[in-house]
Design a protein around this nucleic acid. Structure first.
Lengths: 258, 258
DNA sequence: CCATCTTTGTGCACGCGTTCACAAAGACAT
DNA sequence: ATGTCTTTGTGAACGCGTGCACAAAGATGG
């Protein structure tokens, strides 16, 4: 529908809030599902439910992209799929390299979600010479010596680090040195990069620890009758007002740092 | 129960900000590294640098836990390791089940970061009968029929979903039905859960899409002088004035999902 | 015991993100 | 054409998180 140019967003032609950007892939996925079912239009309410967010938030998010909806009707699914894809840069082909082909690296190489969204695994790289040539997910693993050449030959700007923590910073430095400007880091380390390079971190163990925190809190609230936790864990009276008369000793439970 | 036996750091009797909780594992990791090097104390400045955050933020985060530092000196590393571990619930043993032993599930089972922080893989579960009994990471895979029994026998409260998207919600429902109250979801789907159940999502493809957005933006900003994009498929106009330009009428370009 | 120096703990201000609530825009029926 | 009804787009209020800047606390040296 060539509703065409109602009027420019004008307010922020350029600065899409980071939080919004992080949700666009979510919307895109929900829209793609609708598209496959040949649903022509969708309301903000329905789409928000499918994406698991608030409808007002969704509308505001879309408002940063422009006025793509039709009042009284909703959003054109196909059109919105295209707009979001373009905004995210998914109409391009993004070659990525995965460095560190262990269990996780191999799983990533096999992960279908990459290829389906315009990301193409250009190369798998590992430091272990024994891995060289071995095919993983149909792609032969190449030795780390080739890293710079591979990146430059393929014009790679996105790198995925799936190495052990100890090797991550060195790999990162080499990636950046060779021209990579976006890094997805699975290694449990803080990476230091120069300005202009984006790093996103995925840390499996941190996610579990956050869950454990909430789980403990939930258990603690109902543990008035049941004194036995899942396992050991003697939980004495905890901090006992650590602000007023806090003495670093005295309220320290038996299990102290050695 | 709200005011029942809740005594905590005084200022925030109960609510540690979510953003702070998400950073505690980061601090813990940095502290553990210091501990292994037998460093006795650390200042907020040093620790913040190691964790990759602002020192004021770190101090404020710690202030929610209580007053554990010594002015003029810093923080006692061992003591802080213990306090954070306890706050996160890592002094307990948390049995977890991993459902869906494909590439990713197997990688998770092998991931060392779990076991090292008090998380114990209690069981691996897969719907494929051919997988049953096959050992992965030294643990025999069990069939999905056993799911409820396994969870109840082991007192599992944390579940990890690494199934295909289509199976995730059904698995989630069964996990919750069997007593799981925290879920780490790797499947690219929005999970619906009852109140009281926490879900955290790790979506590999979303992370890449966010990187692609920034990457495109970076490329677009420099494309004024240098017309060469990263690799193939260089779109004209990029994101600069990408709003109501090209007539969207007619058909939608081929943005194929899959 | 007093002075000085280091580092924590936190009050405060600011900016971002979320949510509400509603006017404007357009479809649709009469 | 006009009125009604649906749904978008957004102004405004609110709450959370971040960072500054500084006073208080304690160590250290004389």
């Amino acid at each position: 529908m060539a509703t065409g140019r109602t009027h420019r967003p004008a307010t922020r032609s350029r600065g899409i809030p980071e939080a919004t950007v992080a949700r666009l892939p979510l919307y895109l996925r929900a829209l793609t599902a609708l598209s496959e079912r040949s649903v022509p239009t969708v309301s903000s309410e329905e789409l928000a439910a499918a994406a698991g967010v608030n409808s007002a938030k969704l509308r505001k998010d879309f408002s940063y992209l422009g006025s793509y909806g039709t009042r009284g009707v909703g959003y054109d699914v196909e059109y919105l799929v295209y707009q979001i894809s373009r905004e995210l840069g998914l109409t391009q082909d993004w070659p990525v390299v995965i460095v560190g082909i262990g269990n996780l690296g191999a799983a990533l190489a096999n992960y279908g979600g990459f290829a389906s969204r315009g990301f193409r695994v250009a190369a798998l790289i590992d430091a272990d010479p024994a891995m060289a040539g071995k095919p993983v997910a149909g792609i032969p693993v190449q030795h780390a010596d080739e890293l710079e050449r591979i990146i430059q030959d393929n014009g790679v700007s996105i790198g995925v680090i799936a190495t052990p923590a100890g090797a991550a910073q060195a790999v990162c430095d080499r990636l950046v040195g060779a021209g990579v400007t976006s890094i997805l880091n699975f290694a449990p380390t803080v990476l230091t990069v120069p300005d202009g390079v984006d790093v996103r971190k995925v840390d499996l163990s941190i996610e579990l620890q956050i869950l454990a925190f909430h789980e403990q809190r939930k258990a603690g609230e109902e543990a008035h009758a049941d004194g036995a936790g899942p396992a050991a864990a003697r939980r004495t009276g905890t901090g006992s007002d650590a602000s007023a008369d806090q003495g670093p000793d005295g309220d320290v439970p038996a299990v102290m740092p050695a």
